[in-house]
Design a protein around this nucleic acid. Sequence first.
DNA 1: ATATGTTTCAAACGTATGTTTGGGCGGACG
DNA 2: CGTCCGCCCAAACATACGTTTGAAACATAT
Lengths: 208, 208
Amino acid sequence: MAAQSGTVERILDTAEVLFAQKGFAETSLRAITSKAGVNLAAVNYHFGSKEALIQAIFERFLAPFCTELGERITQMVDDGEPVDLERLLRLISRTALGAHGSDPQRLALFFRLCGLAYTQAQGHLRRFIRERYGDVFNRFLAMLASAAPDVPPMELFWRVHFGLGATVFAMSSMDSLRAICKSDFDADLSAADVTQRLLPFIVGGIRA
Amino acid sequence: MAAQSGTVERILDTAEVLFAQKGFAETSLRAITSKAGVNLAAVNYHFGSKEALIQAIFERFLAPFCTELGERITQMVDDGEPVDLERLLRLISRTALGAHGSDPQRLALFFRLCGLAYTQAQGHLRRFIRERYGDVFNRFLAMLASAAPDVPPMELFWRVHFGLGATVFAMSSMDSLRAICKSDFDADLSAADVTQRLLPFIVGGIRA
DNA sequence: ATATGTTTCAAACGTATGTTTGGGCGGACG
DNA sequence: CGTCCGCCCAAACATACGTTTGAAACATAT
């Protein structure tokens, strides 16, 4: 339970960066531990396995985000304000940022990991996330539904996931896209700039 | 050069399915060759390496698609018809379908591979595709620009990639999303149904 | 029928991986 | 002081991987 000398944190910090850069299977425990400056056996000692390490990384990201999102949603419901599509999306985006020290770089990293989780190795991670945090996500979806009453529920379901896909993909290939953008348009956009462009796209898509 | 007994095709057919299911790094040559019913050494004999096999798979997909797309674009330009955003997107979707025997299943598989190519192992594949088929893609982008003259070029660049992301993601997780949709809404959508829902979303997003 | 070039095969090679082991260090507590 | 327990370490382990090899099987053409 204890984290006396910070070994656990150092592993998590290093691993999430390396995983985001190269993928899960392509990143070896040796690469992680050597870059983190800890012993190879530390991962298996503290986490049990490589799979468990991956889940721990997602846990560290999702736990604060989901609790905070849950609170904000209940508060929004209690207030009884009329829910607005654009506000809702900004809410989730602000929550995602706020839950991790307002570091856009780290948020992009997280979405990149999500992208990997969705595309790679269909199995354990999807189950893990859905089991653990499915409730909050469903509540948010319900809010969305009441915010776009003119869109039929099933239609909304698909459009939300299309938007999620656009987000995940944009974050995943953020770096290369920004490089292309710079060479083609001579514009050096930040991660926050990209997010700002992403939101209207999603809103436009959901409204059809 | 010859493909006498269909070994090459059998490898390609099997490999593209397995890669799409589990990713590139997670699929071993032994899994491919044993399922394809050919000898392990066949891949290295016919393709040279695992990397070259992956590129060959994309080549087989992209070559017919890009030549046909190129033809249709020049024809469209020659005709001098006014280009329309929705028509353009339908054109590329129809071309993608037409280039592979009108099999939606196979098209979804291809997009899933594209998703993997974008997220996984940043390196060789992106270069390979960009080098080989960048021209056609750029011509299509130029058409898009003239079809949406009210959207600034850089804005359009990002929105196109957001749309690409939505597409790739939708195709990548097509199966699981369809399963969720069936259990939540009791609606058994086909891959074509999903595509039909995807297009308006992208159009709406690009138009903002 | 013989020779030639191509394709297939079983087996092995070298390497990298995730995981396990057993010992050693150091603070906590009786 | 001695014992215990959590943590760290170098080393080894077993396995899976991509690739290579050399010979056998095959087709083709002279």
